[in-house]
Design a protein around this nucleic acid. Structure first.
Length: 762
DNA sequence: GTTGGTATCTGTGGA
DNA sequence: AGATACCAAC
């Protein structure tokens, strides 16, 4: 339990934690293993800083996710009360966006700048490619995007990029020599559209501090006196450069605490670098840096902790540390083998049902993790079949659905008419007779005259019909724009949904998908309504209003995972990436196959492989009590069934932490078993005791219909042999038998009748 | 300009 | 398998 009384919060900490909390002057590096009470340290530290007399608004606490930020604020609130809201705690992107809203005009952006998401970025790059007559098949927009993104993350401007022989050579080798040019055009276009992409939210702030108009640097240096950075291992060079600007200067108190775990760095793919930890140590070494290592794990039982310890040692570089737990040995790790991805789904859900029954777990105790979001589908199907409540995080989020984005695009356009991506999206949706040709003409004119498409809207040659449509479109937006100051976000959104014809268009579609699209738009409108009604606005300090502009700012940086999960009791499905920082009693890590996990995209070099291993480490260490690993020997990918070897990571877990009972399929499993021991590498030395034994001859085995099985019957099970049904419980479609088997170690088994094959003997 | 059908491509993670 | 690009017919 949390301690809420001020003063005695220090008592609930161990020695190292307490030092990390109370050492508030000067630079501090906290190396925090999984489950080591990192969040607790951060929150108590903030509370401590406040209680030592610092104003809450002089504290900046940067996290990676809104979820982490919200949790932190809540927990600070418990210790210091309502002042917690005054702390500048949030994601890098949201805190920096907040500053930029105030300062944007100093670097040539409107204060109501739009935030381009990944789709906007990709589509803008697509447009530029088209204008440059470059082949999309050669210039993959995704590749181009990530090149641009990593350039920004490393403070490489278009000009520097053009001069950088190494980068240019890489591009030439990749047959994309023009990337530097695309980059430059992209930056110009974003600026002209009054838009910042995710990287700009960081980069433009850096630019602001670097160019220092009106001595703005001084303003923020003196405003914030204490800094905290969570998940420091996942920051990129650009983020660290900003921090350094704000913290590391002459006469600065350098009150900064960074918390991270090199073993949990999983965002190198988007520019994060462990180098930052090393740089931090070097940069602050002259200023009496203190390093604290949190090594006690309060989350998991020992088999889990030890397994994690061993497997991470396969990585080449790491800060030495030994995570330990005093939670007792706990349960061994279970491995599920399946023939197909579909069967994997079934076996995972079977195991979930079994665990729920045997250990009285709630749905919310359970998480199913996977490497790629596309793996969620099969689990969803089986969960539905079993009537188990679940929630899928990530994947296509609510705000990425077409119909939602459409309405939002209208709203964006009303707020910022220069927003080209929004304009392109809705100029002819719903259909109003402005075709592709016209849109292209407008785009070309805009590009040729260095203006926005909005300005060129009525200047292109077009037939009377089209010209009419264009005028109508423009007037509609202008009219709505005029209402910005008088209407709140909800009124305007409803107005636009109706006026644009979007609502009518959705109503006309009576298919099931059409209905759900309509529901989504209604859902969006509801969300806007509650934004207007509620007092809780993320950025109350800067924009304490209910305007559409404020609303758009708030949602641009929101992801599905940030929505307040309603209190219902559900099983969680998510990617391992989004599970970082979370914990569950029972964790399923699925799809442990070579080329999937580790991903084939990471297999080329050692760094990629190490990052995959860290990802596996993160997955494993989410578990408190139960850890189940699963893999399928065959899996559909790219529309084709592929054969996969089990992941090497399975082989890296020492045998003694694994449950010995190997899984055996009913029917033709001899082959399965031998394959398993062959491919599992380290598993090979298993003793005969661990190999599965058939207790019934498959040839004579004739399973009976499960409905007929009743308490008191004598039954035969292929693997467990003869047994007596003690009792039956569970619902009609979910009957579970408790069976006493004669000659196995743990004679009492609970078996789902729906799936178990049992032959009635008498 | 719009519609609908076919060919082609593409494939991690997320603020 | 699903999304998108492309093309031919209305």
């Amino acid at each position: 339990m949390e301690t809420n009384t001020p003063g005695n919060y220090l008592n609930s900490l161990n020695d190292v934690q307490r030092q990390a909390v109370t050492t508030i002057d000067g630079p501090v590096l906290v190396v925090a293993g999984p489950g080591s009470g990192k969040t607790r340290v951060l929150t108590y530290r903030i509370a401590h800083i406040i209680q030592q007399g610092t104003a809450p608004w002089a504290i900046m606490a940067l996290t990676f996710t809104n979820k982490a930020a919200r949790e932190m604020k809540e927990r600070i609130g418990k210790v210091v009360g309502p002042q917690a809201d005054k702390v500048w705690a949030g994601t890098f992107h949201s805190i920096f966006a907040r500053i930029l809203r105030v300062e944007a005009e100093k670097i040539g952006y409107p204060s109501n700048f739009t935030i381009y998401d990944t789709d906007d970025t990709k589509s803008l790059i697509g447009t530029i490619l088209q204008e440059m007559h470059l082949d999309r098949n050669v210039y993959n927009p995704n590749t181009v995007r990530s090149r641009i993104s990593s350039a920004k993350s490393n403070l490489i401007t278009p000009r520097l990029y053009a001069q950088n022989e190494e980068l240019r050579n890489q591009d030439r080798m990749a047959k994309m020599p023009q990337i530097y040019d695309i980059y430059e055009k992209y930056v110009v276009r974003c600026k002209r559209a009054g838009a910042m992409d995710f990287d700009d939210l960081l980069y433009r702030l850096y630019e602001l501090l670097q160019t220092n108009p009106d001595n703005i640097l001084e303003k923020y240096r003196s405003r914030f006196t204490h800094f905290l950075v969570d998940e420091f291992q996942d920051t990129n060079h650009l983020q660290y450069s900003i921090i350094r600007k704000l913290v590391n200067f002459d006469n600065s108190p350098r009150n900064i605490c960074v918390v991270g775990d090199d073993a949990q760095s999983i965002y190198a793919f988007r520019g994060a670098t462990i180098q930052n930890i090393l740089d931090f140590e070097a940069d602050f070494k002259p200023f009496n840096i203190r390093v604290f290592k949190l090594e006690q794990n309060y989350r998991s039982t020992d088999h889990i902790v030890q397994a994690a310890n061993v497997l991470i040692q396969n990585n080449s570089r790491q800060i030495p540390k030994k995570i330990w737990s005093d939670k007792g040995e706990g349960h061994k790790i279970k491995v599920l083998e399946a023939i197909t991805d579909n069967e994997e789904g079934k076996r995972v859900i079977d195991t979930i049902v079994e665990q729920k029954n045997r250990f009285h777990l709630s749905n919310s105790d359970i998480v199913v993790l996977y490497r790629t979001n596309s793996q969620s589908r099969i689990f969803e199907e089986y969960l539905r079949r079993f009537n188990l409540a679940y929630k899928v995080y990530g994947g296509q989020s609510f705000y990425q659905r077409k119909e939602v984005k459409d309405l939002i695009a209208y709203l964006r356009l009303v707020v910022n008419m220069k927003d080209e991506e929004a304009l392109r999206r809705v100029i002819n949706y719903p259909k109003r007779g402005i075709g592709q040709t016209t849109v292209e003409k407008i785009g070309e004119l805009a590009a040729a005259t260095n203006r926005t498409m909005w300005e060129c809207l009525l200047e292109v040659q077009a037939g009377a019909r089209t010209a009419n449509a264009l005028t109508g479109f423009k007037e509609m937006i202008v009219k709505a724009n005029a209402q910005l100051d008088t209407s709140d976000a909800y009124e305007l959104a409803v107005h636009m949904a109706k006026q644009s014809g979007l609502l009518d268009d959705l109503k006309a579609d009576t298919s099931i998908e059409g209905l759900s699209r309509k529901e989504n738009v209604d859902g969006l409108l509801d969300a806007i309504k509650s934004f207007v009604d509620e007092d809780t606005v993320i950025d109350t300090q800067t924009l304490p209003d209910k305007s559409l502009a404020t609303y758009l700012q708030n949602i641009a940086l929101l992801t599905d995972a940030d929505e307040n999960a309603d209190q219902r009791d559900f099983i969680t499905l998510m990617s391992i990436h989004s599970a970082k920082g979370l914990e569950f009693k029972s964790v399923f890590v699925t799809g442990l196959e070579e080329k999937l996990f580790p991903s084939y995209l990471s297999m080329e070099n050692a760094e990629g492989m190490d990052e995959e291993r860290r990802l596996f480490y993160v997955a494993v260490t989410r578990a408190e009590q139960f850890l189940t690993l699963s893999y399928a020997k065959n899996r559909y990918r790219f529309g084709q069934m592929r054969i996969n070897d089990p992941s090497r990571f399975l082989g890296e877990i020492p045998r003694q932490h694994l449950e010995s009972t190997a899984y055996i399929r009913t029917g033709g499993e001899e082959a399965a078993v031998s394959t398993m021991s062959r491919v599992m590498g380290n598993f090979q030395k298993r003793t005969s005791a661990s190999s599965p034994v058939l207790r019934a001859d498959p040839k004579d085995f004739k399973p009976s219909a499960s409905e007929n099985i009743q308490a008191g019957m004598k039954v035969l099970h292929l693997k467990f042999g003869e047994g007596k049904v003690i009792s039956i419980d569970g619902g009609k479609d979910n009957r579970i038998a408790t069976i006493h088997f004669q000659d196995i170690d743990a004679p009492e088994r609970r078996i789902m009748l729906k799936f178990a094959k049992l032959q009635i003997l008498e």
